[in-house]
Design a protein around this nucleic acid. Structure first.
Length: 302
DNA sequence: CTAGCATGATCAC
DNA sequence: TGATCCTGCTAGC
């Protein structure tokens, strides 16, 4: 999926184009028919994100909860008020570049015939949004959304970060006996970090991925949190993930994306950009973990 | 053209 | 730990 930064961008996009409008909500595919009926004709009030969870608040206390899972995505279309994004979610290409309309087509004349499995379709007088491939798409009450949020750790993209959330992050990660690389993927400990930010933030912190949370000095956990907050805020701003520092991308000419956008992610076997040690690859709880055995040696963590 | 894989998470065993 | 959800890109034939 789309890590947390994509979901926050999506929340902002939905807010920009739909908040304050009454929407027609449907499920062309059918799997969301009952939920769509609950929302159809209601005004969308606000949309927000907590980690990888999206919450769209409709009038009447109905909340659309979406989790994109591994390959969910929204696509958008409409008049000039919809210009700027046509797809947010699972990446269309490696590097997470989003596709944009060129703005040259004819006037907006309503949503197209649904193509493929459209789980949910939102339509205003100005445009439409189609959701496909999501792992969760359901309508909850406000108390139900509160209980979902209560199970999530601090979000590096919440307002007020990095100061807010830092103590909770250090407390939760510092109390776990599981290895830091697994802990960062546990949404109840920190919400929004995925496989790329996990690998890249550990590299930038020089942390051994197999160090247990409770064995890492608290100051290093605090610094890790601050760096994750900065990286993810960049991701929201840019629309894709770049974790290399400018001086470390020097081998590449032109736009930084996609070459050398990452230090370790999907660079297994290639020389580390800093120490030339071949990047390693391991399986950790059914996900691929990338790290530099040179820069992230166990002796560097303590 | 198809098989395999992907920035995720849950559930059964 | 493995199957599942079930999209879309990509490498390879």
């Amino acid at each position: 999926m789309p890590e947390g930064h994509s979901v926050h961008r999506l929340a902002r996009q939905l807010d920009d184009v739909f908040a304050g409008h009454r929407l027609r909500v449907s499920s062309p595919q059918g799997r969301f028919a009952a939920g769509a009926a609950l929302l159809d004709g209601r005004e969308l009030l606000t949309t927000d994100a907590h980690g990888k969870q999206l919450f769209a608040h409709f009038a009447g206390g109905h909340v659309l909860r979406v989790h994109l899972g591994l390959y969910g995505a929204f696509s958008f279309g409409g008049d000039e008020t919809f210009r700027g994004a046509s797809s947010i979610g699972a990446p269309r290409r490696i590097g997470e570049r989003e596709a944009y309309d060129d703005g040259t087509e004819a006037a907006y004349e309503g949503p197209p015939e649904p193509v493929g499995q459209v789980r949910a379709r939102l339509v205003s007088e100005h445009g439409w949004a189609d959701l496909r491939g999501a792992s969760v798409c359901e309508v909850l009450s406000i108390p139900e959304t509160d209980s979902v949020r209560a199970r999530l750790g601090p979000d590096p993209l919440a307002p007020g970060t990095p100061a807010s959330g830092r103590d909770e992050f250090v407390r939760r990660i510092g109390a776990t006996g599981t290895v830091i690389a697994a802990a960062l993927m546990n949404q109840s400990l920190v919400a929004g970090v995925g496989n790329i930010y996990r690998a890249e933030s550990l590299f930038r912190a020089g942390l051994d991925p197999w160090a247990r949370g409770r064995d890492i000095p608290q100051a290093r956990l605090a610094a890790l949190w601050d760096d994750i907050c900065a990286l993810m805020a960049d991701g929201v701003r840019d629309g894709h993930i770049i974790t290399t520092r400018p001086g470390d991308r020097r081998a590449h000419q032109g736009p930084v994306w996609p070459d050398h956008a990452y230090y370790t992610y999907q660079r297994q076997g290639m020389p580390c950009l800093l120490c030339r040690t071949p990047i390693g690859l391991a399986e950790l709880s059914a996900r691929k973990l990338y790290w530099c055995p040179g820069c992230q040696a166990a002796t560097r963590t303590a």
